[in-house]
């Protein structure tokens, strides 16, 4: 519990201000460059089209395969988003600037998580719309949108840590998924299960999968900032 209290009190202080400033910076960069919000949804849409050919999706199996298609597209789109999160900082020495500035590592980490989460969520809403149209399944139920948001939070929490690591290695585009995908398998399983239940109109398993996602989020929101702070020391 003490760890949670320390993190909370930390967030309550003026760090909140610097977090907002850094998120604003990321948003500004995104609106100028548009390298996530345009290319990633198109990539995700392309994946949905490819899946349609690979699995030969007919109306009678679309309910069955839609959750898998949804979350594989999200995961791949998420990898692209996470790769951009720190590559953008690396260009022209932005990362060193961030690390040298008098902002705590926790604040840097949280701001990166929140801005990546925001970008990914926008991309996911676009993909949900695409799936609703292409597969004829209504995707915008409250439970599903909440699940998407919570899963994205856990996904980007782990993703930000691994992106910060992978960006400094050779062949970083390959390293990120190799490091990252094995670790997020549990939350992806949970998300797929909730999605298939929502699509099938059942709500039996949600009572155990949704808390599972929340626990996953909370656990890694506690551990990852600490590891980010210790790993990012130069």
């Amino acid at each position: 519990m003490w760890a949670l209290e320390i993190r909370l009190s930390l967030l309550m202080s003026k760090n909140i201000q610097s977090i907002f400033i850094m998120i604003k910076k990321d948003l500004l960069l995104e609106f100028r460059g548009k390298d996530i919000l345009v290319s990633v949804p198109i990539f995700g849409f392309l994946l949905i089209v490819l899946f349609n050919f690979a699995l030969d999706v007919s109306p009678n199996i679309s309910n069955h395969v839609a959750p898998g298609i949804l979350w594989v597209s999200f995961a791949f789109a998420g990898i692209l988003t996470m790769n951009r999160a720190f590559v953008r900082e690396l260009e022209q020495g932005g990362l060193e600037g961030l690390l040298l500035s008098p902002i705590s590592r926790d604040a840097i980490f949280i701001s990166k998580v929140l801005s990546s989460c925001l970008f990914m969520f926008v991309v996911e809403i676009a993909l949900l719309l695409a799936l609703t149209i292409m597969m004829n399944i209504w995707m915008f139920s409250i439970v599903l949108v909440v699940t998407v948001l919570l899963t994205t939070l856990g996904f980007t929490t782990l993703g930000t840590l691994f992106s910060a690591i992978a960006v400094q290695t050779r062949s970083r585009e390959v390293m990120l998924p190799i490091l990252f995908f094995p670790m997020v398998i549990p939350i992806l399983i949970a998300a797929v299960e909730v999605t298939s239940e929502v699509i099938a109109g059942q709500f039996i398993g949600i009572g155990k999968w949704l808390p599972f996602i929340i626990i996953f989020d909370a656990l890694f929101l506690l551990i990852c900032p600490w590891l980010f702070g210790t790993v990012m020391q130069e």
């Binding site: 782990l158 840590l161 690591i165 400094q168 490091l179 890694f220 551990i223 990852c224 210790t230 790993v231």
Partner: peptide, 9 residues
């Protein structure tokens, strides 16, 4: 350092 982070997580 990176390996230690992965070993823990």
């Amino acid at each position: 350092l990176y390996a230690a982070a992965i070993g823990i997580i």
